[in-house]
Structures are given as structure tokens and as C-alpha cells.
Amino acid sequence: MQRCMVFGVLILAGCQTTHEQLMQQGYPPAFADGYQDGCGSGRDAAGSISGTFTKNVPRYLSDKLYSSGWDDGFRQCQAALANQDRQDLHDKVLNDRDRDWQRDIDNGKARAFHPR
């Protein structure tokens, strides 16, 4: 539930950085730091070309809030980018089908109105 709320807040917040949004919502600084690092890393793992894989390993191993934030950020941002990629592909397939359907309709009309 908390993860869904974090993700919803991030979507609605607009121009603030992820870190600022989380801090404004009352999350501890260590969680916000981890979430920001994990989110960039999750997008990178999902195929983003940003090259922002970041993980403070000593802090991840010793700071539960940072590691929890990193894990949440990684999973949520990786999933969000992967879902967006799937939606973009789905939209392209639909657009291609619509284009092909319209071409078939236009060809049928042309044959009907201009018999050989």
C-alpha cells in the first residue's frame, strides 16, 4: 500500500524532483535518497539510455531506510518504464492496424467507384 501511495504521489507532483516530493510527503531523507537512486537505476535496467545506475552499496548494506527506498524506487520506476514501452508498442500496433484497415477501405471504394 505504501509503495502505491509513493508512486501515486510521484505521478501527481509534477516538476519537483523525486527527492523533494518524498521529503514533502514526510519520508525520511535516507528513504528519499535511496528511492531517487533506485528509481534512476530501475529506469536504466528497463532500457533507458540515461546511464544513471546508482547504488551506494555501503549505505545500502547498513541503512535500512536507504535500502528500502532504493528497492522501492528500482521496482516502481523499472515497472513504469517497462509498462510505458509496452503501451507504446501496443499503440503502434493499433495505429498500424487502423492504417491498414483504412487503406483497405480506400482501395475497396476506389474499385467500387472506378471499375475496370
Rank of each mutant, 00 (worst) to 15 (best):
M1D: 06
M1I: 01
R3G: 03
R3T: 05
C4Q: 15
V9A: 14
L10D: 06
I11S: 10
I11K: 15
L12D: 10
A13S: 14
A13G: 07
A13K: 11
G14I: 00
C15R: 13
T17C: 03
T18M: 02
H19S: 04
E20V: 03
E20Y: 08
M23H: 14
Q24K: 15
Q25G: 01
Q25C: 04
Y27G: 01
Y27E: 04
P28Y: 11
P29D: 12
A30K: 07
F31I: 02
F31M: 07
D33F: 04
D33Q: 04
G34F: 04
G34A: 06
Y35A: 11
D37V: 00
C39Y: 00
S41H: 05
R43V: 00
D44T: 08
A45H: 00
A46Q: 01
G47H: 09
S48A: 12
I49Y: 10
S50A: 10
S50G: 14
S50D: 04
G51D: 01
F53Y: 15
K55G: 05
N56Q: 07
N56Y: 00
V57W: 09
Y60F: 14
Y60Q: 05
S62Q: 10
D63C: 09
L65R: 10
Y66M: 00
Y66W: 02
G73T: 01
F74N: 08
F74G: 05
C77L: 00
C77D: 05
Q78G: 07
A79L: 06
A80Q: 12
A80D: 11
A80Y: 15
Q84M: 12
D85S: 12
Q87K: 10
D88M: 11
L89G: 08
L89W: 15
H90W: 11
K92T: 13
K92F: 15
K92Q: 15
V93F: 09
L94S: 13
L94W: 06
N95S: 14
D96K: 12
R99H: 13
R99E: 13
W101R: 08
W101I: 05
W101H: 08
W101L: 06
Q102R: 04
R103A: 15
D104C: 10
D106H: 10
D106S: 09
N107E: 04
K109W: 15
K109C: 11
A110M: 07
A112Q: 10
P115T: 06
P115H: 11
